[in-house]
Simulated scan of single mutants.
Amino acid sequence: MASLLLRTLLLLLASIQGCLVLSSKIVGGKPAIPHSRPYMVSLQVQGNHFCGGTLIHPQFVMTAAHCVNQINPQLMMVVVGAHNLEVPETVWQVFSVQRLYSNDYDDKNKLNDIALIELDRPATLNAEVQVAPLPTQGQSLPAGTQCLAMGWGRLGTMLPIPSVLQELNVTVVTFLCREHNVCTLAPRQRAGICFGDSGGPLICQGVVHAVDSFIIGGCASQRHPDFFARVSLYVDWINSILKKAEEKQEEEKDEEGLWQASGSSMGNP
């Protein structure tokens, strides 16, 4: 029975080589300085981290569409201000999901792998919780640009998930990449994103230029770059959603103010 199980596992592993694998962990990285990445978000179900995200507005998180397209939003929790996921801190802020937004995500071809999560209330910005800036619409990211990938994913395909946030210095490359992706490698290292960091940010020159999307063939294989969704293609779409949400909030405040004024003049309690 044991040998049959082993053969089955080996066949399964062999079958996925060369196939697209949704990525979610950092291989070959190092622990981040606690709370040094205050825009980093943990998406969780029943207290278990499953994807990363980036706080881009007090009430909006950007993540990968494949992270959320098949999950009931009512089951999701969003944690900001975290570093060690096994040790809750008073600086944690935990939210539920009010609404999800996607932009024609194509699961088959891994296109438009970007989504926005509207939180049930705005986050309180402080030293441990900050918003990451976006690039401009259409902004390019030249090959050779130095960036930072991060996440709470596995340290290797068969290694455990770390409790503390990991980060990795990577370089933007163009070989084998697609125009709508940003691709990276960690030069001279067996390192890269892996199973579990999906949805996390790629930070380049202080800006969140991309969202962790997928890998080909295996974690840190060095045969293929790591693939991220290029954020600069979606900035106008993102800003339109943020603007509509802010306008709606202003309308609700005005209506509440009118109701309170009307109630006061009528002498109601």
Rank of each mutant, 00 (worst) to 15 (best):
M1Y: 15
A2I: 11
S3K: 11
T8I: 08
L9Y: 11
L11K: 12
A14S: 14
A14R: 14
I16N: 06
I16Q: 13
Q17A: 09
C19F: 06
L20K: 13
S24F: 08
K25L: 11
I26H: 04
V27M: 04
G28Y: 07
G28L: 04
P31V: 02
A32T: 07
A32M: 07
P34N: 06
S36P: 03
S36N: 08
P38Y: 01
P38H: 03
M40R: 01
V41Y: 12
S42E: 02
S42T: 02
C51I: 00
C51N: 06
C51T: 01
G53N: 03
I56F: 04
I56H: 09
F60Q: 04
F60Y: 12
A64F: 05
A64V: 01
A64T: 00
V68S: 00
N69H: 14
Q70I: 05
I71F: 09
N72Q: 10
Q74I: 10
M76L: 12
M77H: 14
V79R: 15
G81A: 05
A82I: 06
E86A: 14
P88D: 08
V91A: 13
Q93T: 02
F95T: 00
S102D: 11
N103S: 08
N103G: 00
D107L: 10
D107W: 02
N109T: 00
N109M: 08
K110Y: 12
L111T: 11
N112M: 07
A115P: 11
I117A: 05
R121H: 15
T124A: 12
T124H: 14
N126H: 10
E128I: 07
V129N: 10
V131F: 08
A132Y: 02
Q137Y: 05
Q137I: 02
G138F: 11
A143L: 03
G144E: 04
C147P: 06
L148K: 09
M150H: 06
M150Q: 13
G153Q: 04
G153R: 08
V164N: 10
V164F: 02
L168H: 06
V170H: 09
T171E: 13
L176K: 14
C177L: 06
R178F: 10
H180A: 12
H180P: 00
H180Q: 15
C183K: 04
A186Y: 07
G192L: 01
C194S: 14
F195D: 12
F195H: 15
D197P: 01
P201T: 00
L202P: 05
I203M: 11
G206E: 05
V211H: 08
D212K: 02
R223Q: 15
R223K: 14
H224D: 09
H224Y: 14
H224G: 00
P225D: 07
D226P: 01
D226E: 13
F227Y: 15
F227E: 02
L233F: 09
L233D: 14
Y234T: 08
V235Q: 07
N239C: 03
N239F: 01
N239Q: 15
K243Y: 12
E247W: 01
K248C: 08
Q249Y: 09
E250D: 13
E251P: 01
K253T: 06
E256S: 12
A261M: 10
G263V: 06
G263H: 13
S265C: 13
